[in-house]
Amino acid sequence: MLTTALALIDADGVEALSMRRLGKALGRDPMRLYRHASSKEALLDGVVDLVLSELTVPAVPEGDDWENALRRTAHAFRALALAHPHVVPLLVTRPLATPLAMRPLGTLRPLEALLDLLIGAGFDGRGALHAYRLYMGFLYGHVLNELQERVQDPDESDDLLRLGLYRLPVREFPRLRALAGELAAYDGERELDEGLDIVLAGLRPRGRSDVQACEGRARDATK
């Protein structure tokens, strides 16, 4: 049922999903679906749970570090967002609908895995929570911006027309129109890595690798 609901959302958006349409797609009486999902809200929670179940936070292998693990997780999250663009608003907003402890367990597993990764890297509990919020806040913002900047007409050669910016009044939006070339050349993957450089550099002093490096420099200084 959730797989079919996800397919309907992928095809036509969240607004197009209804119990009636889902029942038709499954060949079942829509009223019987309420045995598995008490409401459309519960169904949407299930869809979010299903999508997030595809996100794996990698363990930090021997010789690797927590920063690379966070980079791989970020790229995996972006890939999920691009594969299910209509679900992204749900991934960002559905967690706000309920208190932390009342969310579906599937939505909490990435949080648990990231906290485990960060604490294992040397962050204390408070620092791990801070790092998680900063990291996920950046990821949410990035994927939302990337999806909003999609090219409207890929076959059009003129950047204003490709992006649909020709609709904007010239006098009110001179900057946006002038930046059509930059907007058309947007590389979401590269910008994700550039943003991660900034986020991870800010978190680095809290991690074990920098603590150990500082200790090593202190030992060298006493020799």
Rank of each mutant, 00 (worst) to 15 (best):
Leu176Trp: 07
Arg32Tyr: 03
Gly141His: 11
Lys40Met: 12
Ser38Ala: 15
Thr107Pro: 00
Gly27Lys: 06
Leu91Val: 00
Val199Ile: 15
Met19Thr: 04
Lys223Gln: 08
Arg20Asp: 08
Trp66Lys: 00
Arg208Val: 08
Leu2Lys: 02
Ala128Tyr: 03
Leu147Ala: 04
Arg219Met: 11
Gln148Arg: 15
Glu149Ser: 06
Glu15Cys: 02
Leu165Ile: 05
Gly164Met: 12
Val57Ala: 04
Asp159Glu: 14
Arg71Lys: 15
Leu17Met: 08
His130Tyr: 10
Gly141Trp: 09
Ala37Val: 05
Met102Ala: 14
Glu62Phe: 07
Leu165Ser: 03
His86Pro: 01
Leu192Tyr: 05
Val57Leu: 10
Pro174Arg: 12
Leu55Pro: 09
Thr98Ala: 15
Asp220Ala: 13
Gly23Asn: 07
Arg21Phe: 02
Leu33Arg: 05
Ser18Glu: 09
His142Thr: 10
Pro95Glu: 04
Leu115Ser: 05
Ala25Ile: 06
Glu194Trp: 00
Tyr186Met: 07
Asp155Cys: 05
Leu168Met: 08
Gln152Asp: 09
Pro95Ala: 08
Leu200Pro: 04
Ala128Phe: 02
Thr93Phe: 09
Ala213Asn: 07
Met31Lys: 12
Arg94Glu: 09
Arg177His: 06
Gly141Leu: 13
Arg94Ser: 09
Leu129Gln: 06
Leu196Trp: 07
Ala7Arg: 15
Leu111Lys: 04
Pro30Arg: 10
Val211Phe: 09
Glu182Ser: 15
His86Gly: 02
Gly46Arg: 12
Leu161Met: 04
Ala69Asp: 06
Pro110Val: 11
Ala184Asn: 00
Gln152Pro: 01
Leu203Gln: 03
Ala97His: 08
Thr56Leu: 15
Glu172Phe: 06
Met1Gln: 06
Leu144Gln: 14
Ala59Gly: 13
Met102Arg: 13
Tyr166Cys: 04
Leu111Gly: 00
Asn68Tyr: 03
Pro205Ile: 02
Asp155Lys: 10
Leu161Phe: 01
Ser157Cys: 07
Arg150Pro: 00
Leu108Arg: 14
Thr93Glu: 15
Ser18Lys: 10
Val143Leu: 05
Gly106Met: 13
Asp29His: 13
Arg71Pro: 04
Leu118Ser: 06
Thr107Ala: 11
Pro95Met: 01
Ala178Tyr: 11
Met136Lys: 03
Asp155Asn: 11
Val57Tyr: 00
Leu26Phe: 06
Arg109Ser: 12
Val14Gly: 07
Met102Thr: 10
Pro95Tyr: 03
Arg72Ser: 14
His75Leu: 13
Asp193Met: 07
Leu163Arg: 01
Leu115Asp: 01
Arg94Met: 13
Pro61Met: 09
Leu114His: 02
Ser38His: 10
Pro104Cys: 11
Leu160Trp: 07
Ile9Gly: 00
Leu160Asn: 08
Pro85Tyr: 00
Ala37Ser: 14
Ala128Leu: 05
Glu62Pro: 04
Arg171Glu: 12
Leu26Gly: 03
Ala76Val: 09
Gly202His: 13
Thr222Trp: 07
Arg133Thr: 13
Asp220Arg: 14
Ser39Gln: 11
Asn145Asp: 14
Tyr186Ser: 05
